[in-house]
């Protein structure tokens, strides 16, 4: 226990860094993922093709490969990052965007056909139908799966710890190496801080799910 209390500032730093990585990547991924989902249902064939290929490839890429590419291969190719956080955010948001796109697309498919027909029959074009009628309803129904994706994002950010970013897992590794006799306590401390993010998000997801279930 002592080792956790002594190193509480380190844990706290790591916790904040994990929160930062997850928040920034989450916001970027939500934005890019929604755009990808919109492209997936758009009338322009090239956009559909691009979005399909992106989602299919990124969803089947192990996250570690994405990180390896962003943090180790890209710098060798001349793309230098000031901080490895940037590489981590690129890898995390590119990876998560694919899952968000899939979730939003399933939400778009769940909106009743009559909604789109009604919108079109009063003369809306594709952009208006999508942004004013379909997406607001679609996003609402997919909030629980989106929260689950964000929970996974928080857990996935731990991979950054292995690619030169000092976040919760990265500090955990350092502390575990420095305090070989108290590994159990060190890692349970790390686990606690992860649960501090993931458990409330999980409760939020199930609450929202219940609310939406009543509304429909």
């Amino acid at each position: 226990m002592d080792v956790i209390i002594e190193n509480l500032p380190l844990y706290w730093n790591g916790f904040l860094r994990t929160l930062f990585l997850s928040t920034v990547s989450g916001v970027i991924a939500l934005f890019v993922g929604t755009l990808l989902a919109a492209a997936r249902v758009s009338p322009v064939a090239a956009l559909r093709g691009f979005s399909t290929a992106y989602v299919e490839i990124l969803r089947n890429t192990p996250l570690t490969i994405a990180f390896f590419f962003a943090a180790i291969v890209l710098p060798r190719l001349g793309v230098k990052f000031e901080q490895f956080e940037v590489a981590a955010i690129i890898a995390l948001s590119a990876y998560t965007a694919a899952f968000i796109a899939e979730a939003v697309r399933s939400g778009v498919n769940s909106v009743p056909v009559g909604q789109a027909e009604a919108a079109r029959s009063i003369g809306m074009n594709f952009g208006q139908v999508l942004s004013l009628i379909i997406l607001p309803q679609a996003l609402r129904t997919v909030i629980p799966p989106l929260i689950n994706i964000l929970i996974a994002l928080v857990k996935n950010s731990s991979v950054a710890g292995a690619f030169f970013v000092l976040e919760l897992f990265g500090y955990g590794r350092q502390l575990a190496n420095a305090n070989g006799d108290q590994v159990l306590a060190v890692l349970l401390g790390v686990a606690f801080f992860y649960l501090l993010i993931t458990v409330p998000l999980g409760i939020l997801a199930s609450t929202v799910e219940r609310k939406v279930a009543i509304a429909r």
């Binding site: 857990k155 731990s158 897992f169 590994v183 686990a191 992860y194």
Partner: peptide, 15 residues
């Protein structure tokens, strides 16, 4: 379910 998988691997490896 709330744990990163890599943390669990690391845990088993060290503990």
């Amino acid at each position: 379910r709330g744990m990163p998988v890599v943390l669990m691997m690391f845990f088993v490896l060290l503990v």
